[in-house]
Amino acid sequence: MGTLRNALGGICVAFLLLAVVDVAVRLGFPRSDRLNENFSSTYLHREIDALRGSSPTVVLGDSALWGYGLPAQRSALSLLRRQGIPNENLSYEGGSPPNTYAMLRALLRDGVRPRLVVFNVNQKEFNPMDSAYRQLHPSVERLAWSALDRSERALLKPTQPSGSDQALQRIVESTWQLYGMRNDLREWLFGDVDAVHVAQGAIERISGTAGRRRAAHRPTAEAFEGTYDLTPLNASDVSFRFLALVADLLHRNRIPALAILTPTNHVLLHQYVDTPEYAANLRASTFLLRSRGIEVLNLDDAFPGTDFIDNDHLNAAGNVRLAKVLRSALQ
């Protein structure tokens, strides 16, 4: 028994020390301008918790509003914040109408009532081939799944693998804050989810691989063939149904909202988006939202091709222009 006592004693001491570290993380882990690239459900829960009792302007967008390709402080929403327009940017890569809806449900369930919700509508997300068409971000799914109705869950394809190990993993992540937020911690420390990515990036810059890869992946129109589904939008489109659910939820709860039709690179995507079908789908989205009293800001063709990194992500200059436009709209 002395053997067992020694081992258990050591494990208990370890648990105690880790619990102390956990408390420190809970109290002291900084909040950033936007969600991390690989944010955890633990971190998201923390962010939503921090908003409880306040009435913020909440932004629920996809990578376009998240500021893809740029550091956090150069995204349009961060610029707006520094210009005196406070907002809570809960956008992320992989956002879509189902994701916007799930986030809204989670916010309302957890006692956050925004004074204004800003979200974007990206036409590519109505394409059944899009990864976010009927899938939630894994961290959002973990947090918001229970807030959805059964019929809403039935429309979605769960991303969470099942199994005893996955279930245990989820239990550990929800009880051990430091472990649950490990990706967020690493991004805060290293700017990346893996410390070794920093070394990898340096090696690829020295060897020239980074430059060669960038050149090989320069966006071309052909690369986006099939990205935008031009069939008429209707209730059979799951993502469009969730857009309606977003609008209904906002309307029912009398929460003011501003829907942005996502800036789209018409120079690059001319053959796909300068078509009657695309325009009809934009009108369908606009009509759906306005019929529920949601203001719509059509920025679809509002930005020149030089403001884009690719099909729908703005570069630094584009984000400055977007911040200016949003500032006018929000004021």
Binding site: N6, G10, L16, L17
Partner: peptide, 10 residues
């Protein structure tokens, strides 16, 4: 010692 052991594991 359990304390040392626990510290190293943590």
């Amino acid at each position: 010692h359990p304390c040392v052991l626990g510290f190293v594991i943590a």
